[in-house]
Design a protein around this nucleic acid. Structure first.
Length: 300
DNA sequence: GACACGTGGCG
DNA sequence: TCGCCAAGTGT
């Protein structure tokens, strides 16, 4: 657990906590019954799905997933093909394979119980600085800084007076730690509230400063919302990309009978055959596709 | 630290 | 229409 900070509390902390208590969205993973029904596994699965995927798209998939595989042990008995298929169109199917591998690791190394320690969580497949602390904080209630894209944007604006955060950096964790309340239960709410504010008020494109609980204490708003530049890395174009080709190949296998197709029939009409072959090869290398002879399939 | 990695909604 | 954006991670 994290040691208390000696830095003074931000003036807006009380406003943020009050605002969260009054307006937080009623999301499935925030309900008491969700924790009661699914335990830390439910939180872990939700965080995997939420990596780079919008809340609204995750919700229906999460319920279905937990119904099918209610525990790490249950999922450890599934095949990679089953998890990739169940992952459906959530995107980044490698996350499904990582989640499956993490379930196996939880069974092997932790007796089927999702660990509480951040280092143990970090050692699991597909879990990084964000997800490890999200599980430790939002399920187990421990005191750690949780830093995601929302948190970084709120800190950039409210504390640093900048219009956009810089690219993610190791120092972000320490910045958040300085803001965290000493009280354990308050720190959990604070983590959630920073993310919530970034998600619904302090948004990337059109922040709603008129309704922001931090308004009077926000360095950026107080300075007149100056454009301080944007050093974030731009996403590569999707249309015509290898990612698009990979997505098309995998979709073809997901929707195919028995999850298999003859290799020369899969997206046979792809405009760039070289790119198509490269996509297939990289999917095989990454794991979500297996090749036997001339047949492509989801991996057994 | 930069890059690759899906999918789809929204302004 | 088209670029931006979404509770990131591994290499």
């Amino acid at each position: 657990m994290l040691a208390p900070s000696s830095t003074p509390a931000p003036v807006w902390r009380g406003e943020l906590l009050d605002w969260y208590a009054a307006t937080a969205r009623d999301l499935p993973w925030r309900r008491a019954e969700f924790a009661a029904d699914h335990g830390a596994w439910g939180t872990l699965v939700s965080e995997f799905m939420l990596q780079q995927t919008p809340v609204a798209r995750v919700i229906p998939h999460l319920e279905a997933w937990l119904r099918r595989w209610p525990t790490p042990s249950a999922m450890s008995n599934a095949t990679p093909a089953e998890v990739v298929h169940q992952w459906s169109n959530l995107g980044y199917p490698r996350r499904a394979l990582w989640l499956h591998r993490a379930a196996l690791e939880i069974v092997e190394r932790h007796g089927g119980v999702v660990p509480r320690d951040v280092p143990a969580l970090l050692a699991l497949s597909g879990i990084g600085e964000y997800t490890a602390r999200a599980v430790a904080v939002f399920h187990y209630g421990d005191r750690h800084p949780v830093v995601d894209t929302n948190t970084r944007r709120v800190i950039a604006r409210a504390v640093d007076g900048r219009s956009q955060p810089g690219p993610p950096a190791k120092r972000d964790l320490a910045r958040m730690a300085e803001l965290l309340p000493d009280d354990v239960e308050e720190s959990t709410i604070f983590n959630a509230a920073m993310m919530e504010l970034g998600a619904v008020v302090c948004t990337a494109r059109a922040p709603r400063c008129e309704v922001c609980p931090l308004a009077s204490g926000c360095a950026w708003l107080t300075a007149g919302r100056p454009d301080t530049g944007d050093t974030r890395r731009r996403q590569a174009r999707f249309e015509g990309s290898d990612r698009q080709a990979r997505g098309a190949v995998l979709r073809a296998l997901r929707t195919a009978e028995d999850h298999r197709r003859a290799a020369d029939e899969v997206v046979a009409d792809w405009p760039d055959p070289v790119q198509r072959d490269r996509a297939i090869d990289s999917l095989i290398a990454d794991g979500p596709v297996a090749a036997v002879g001339g047949t492509l399939m989801l991996p057994r």
